[in-house]
Every structure is written in structure tokens, then in C-alpha cells.
Amino acid sequence: MRLHVDQRHERVLELVRERGSLRVAELAAELGVSAVTLRRDVETLATQGRVQRLHGAVVWPDEASAEMGARQESAESVVIGMIVPTTASIFADIVRGAREAVGEWGGRLVLGVSGYVDTEDAVQAGHLVAGGAAGLLVAPSWSGGVPVDGQEQWLLDRDVPTVLVERSAPPGNPAAALDRVRTDRAHGAAVAVGHFAALGHRRITAVLQEGPHAAQIIAGYESAVHSLGLDGDPGAPSVREHGDYEASVDYLVDAVRARGVTAALVHGDEDAIVLVPRLQARGIRVPDDLALIAYDDEVAGLADVPLTAVAPPKRSVGELAAKLLLQRLAECGSGRPPAPRQHVELLPELRIRASCGGGTLAR
């Protein structure tokens, strides 16, 4: 028999008073309600000052302040190392998110930068761990976004908890057992293709940078084109070196004039901004002749023709990765079995601007 909300609140108070603290998931299971319902109950009781929430647990107020103080005291000495290939582009916000999350725990984030040099990752990791880092957040300099030829070995040799950031390892690779947090870039590409389709575009191409995220974006592009029954450009997706603008312009001009392409996904913002005036100089107007969506949304809104863009949740990636690592560190001293490893993927959003136009195509 389901308890009335007031009865449920009283039962929550009774159980927490008896045991001092309970995890939300355990309490929900004991009461036979969903975790969502239980969290709502706890939020109400916490607002009333009758219990206190504490990192997935419900704590009786007399014990909450002491436990919080102990956690803060231990966290003051926690140093988290973070290795990124650059502090520019998407990683600027990822680092900010991680720094804020670590700071909320009273810890300190220390940064290492590899410069996209594969061998530098291990050097930076050794330096950070020797300097006192209790755990590592790592975006390795894997050119394809995944390790090849044993590139993951240095990660496995580190005797500290490690969370991959915006990187992954394929099933069967030892690094696949690591926690990771990344953007689902395939989903973002599929959302972009779906938006083009909703506007009436049938033949869509892609011009992408070579790099760690290209494979995911290609996969999302191809899957969405197939699922939506669109006429993908026979020459697409096109993966080119960053800055290969003349080749990209030639490719797009030919795609529009010879193959009837009316929309393009371009990764990333900087390339898209450079391409627009060059296309217009060749008689291809954006969005009249070619609708365009950029990928990353770092500066897309500042273009002369403001660019619709796929926006990864960059700050949230850093924040969640840091919280996951801090959770692992807390487990190390708790005496409890560690929670299952996690592969977390966050969905990007599409920010609509002028570069797509709005009318349905006649052709």
C-alpha cells in the first residue's frame, strides 16, 4: 500500500533519525518509491531544516554538520591533477568546470598541458603525481580520440584514480575500464542533420577537421542521413586538415553546383567563419544557396552571418568528471566497495542563428 506523502515524510524522518544517515537510493528502495520521488521528499524536508542532504545521502541534522566539517577538512589537502592538450578551444570551459567542482570541495586543481604531443602526457602525469596529485583528469593526445599501439599503457601504470575527459577507449582495450566523461558528438551531428531535414534540405554534406572528434561526428552524420532517408552527398563526409580552406571551398562549391547540396555541417567554428566569405566570393551565398551549421559554438555567434551551431556542454563535462574523480577518492578511504565504473556521455544542444535560413526549400 502506497504511503501518503505526509506519511512518507514521517517514515523518512524516522529512518534517518534511527540510523543517522542513509543513501537516497537505499531509502527509496526501502520505502518502495522511485529515486525521483524520494529526492523530492528529501528536498522538501531539507528546506524545512528537518534533514540535511549530503552527496547522495540523507543525514540527520545533528550529524550532518560534523560529517560536512570532516569532509571539508579532508578535502583541503586534496590536489587533483588535470592534463589537457590545450587550454584553448573547448578545453578552456572544461578546465573551468573542473576547477569550480574541485574548489567546492575545498581542493585544488593543478594543470598540465601536453600540446597534443603524445609522449608529453606521461611526462605531465608523472610530474603531477610526484607533486602530490591524488587523482588525474586526463584528455590524452590521442589523434583519433582513442588509443592505438599501446598509447593507453602510461594511464594504467599510474597508481591513482583516473578519469578520461572527452576521450574513450574501444571495448577490449584496457583503458575502457576507466571512468570517463565526454560529449556525445555523434548525437550533436545527428541533431544538426535533423534540423536541416526539418527545413526541407535533402542533400547534406559535411566538412570536418581531422582530429579526436572527427570519427564521432562522422558517425552521427552518416547515421542521421540514413535514418531520415536523406540523399547524403556522395563525396561526404569530407575530413580535411584544419586551415585547408581553399580545398574546402572548392569542395563545397562543386557540391552545391554539381551535386545539388543545399546544407553543410562544418567542424569547427573557426573554419566555418573563414569559409563563409570565401564561398560568397565564389557566388555561393549563406544561407540562400547553402545552409550551414558549425560545430563547437565557441565563437559561432560572432560571425558576420551568425552561425547556427552544435554546442557541447563543455563546463558540465569538466564539472562531472571532477565530481566523479572526487567520488572515487572518497571511496578509497570509506571501507565500502567501490561503485561501478561509469561511462558518462552528455548531449550537446543546437543553438539556432541566421546561417540556416528558415524557409522550406522548393527543390
Results as ranks from 00 to 15, higher is better:
Leu3Asn: 01
Gln7Tyr: 09
Arg8Glu: 09
Arg8Asp: 09
Val12Gly: 08
Leu22Val: 11
Leu22Tyr: 04
Val24Ala: 13
Ala25Trp: 02
Leu27Thr: 04
Glu30His: 00
Asp41Ser: 05
Val42Phe: 07
Leu45Val: 08
Thr47Asn: 10
Gln48Ser: 14
Gln48His: 11
Val51Phe: 09
His55Trp: 09
Val58Gly: 11
Ser65Val: 15
Ala66Tyr: 07
Glu67Ser: 12
Ala75Pro: 08
Ile80Ala: 09
Pro85Ser: 10
Pro85Met: 11
Thr87Ile: 03
Thr87Cys: 02
Ala88Tyr: 01
Val95Met: 01
Arg96Pro: 00
Ala101Ile: 06
Ala101Val: 05
Glu104Gly: 06
Leu111Lys: 02
Gly112Phe: 01
Ser114Arg: 03
Gly115Pro: 05
Tyr116Met: 04
Thr119Met: 08
Val129Tyr: 01
Gly131Asn: 10
Ala133Asp: 00
Val138Gly: 03
Trp142Arg: 01
Pro147Asn: 06
Glu152Arg: 08
Trp154Cys: 10
Leu155Glu: 05
Leu164Lys: 00
Ser168His: 10
Pro171Glu: 14
Asn173His: 12
Ala175Ser: 08
Ala177Glu: 14
Asp179Trp: 04
Asp184Gln: 12
His187Asn: 09
Ala189Met: 08
Ala190Gly: 15
Val193Trp: 10
Ile204Asp: 14
Ile204His: 12
Thr205Ile: 09
Ala206Glu: 10
Pro212Tyr: 14
Ala215Lys: 12
Gln216Cys: 15
Ile217Phe: 03
Gly220Glu: 14
Val225Ile: 15
Leu228Ile: 05
Leu230Ile: 12
Pro234Asn: 08
Asp244Met: 09
Ala247Met: 04
Asp250Arg: 10
Val261Asn: 03
Ala263Thr: 03
Gly268Met: 05
Asp269Val: 12
Glu270Asp: 07
Asp271Pro: 08
Asp271His: 13
Asp271Arg: 12
Ile273Lys: 00
Val274Leu: 06
Leu275Gln: 00
Val276Phe: 08
Ile284Cys: 07
Pro287Phe: 04
Ala291Phe: 00
Ala294Thr: 11
Tyr295Pro: 01
Val299Asp: 11
Ala300Gln: 02
Gly301Met: 05
Gly301Cys: 04
Asp304Trp: 10
Val305His: 05
Pro306His: 10
Ala309Gly: 02
Pro312Thr: 01
Lys314Pro: 09
Lys323Ser: 14
Ser355Asp: 05
Ser355Asn: 06
Thr360Asn: 09
Arg363Asp: 09
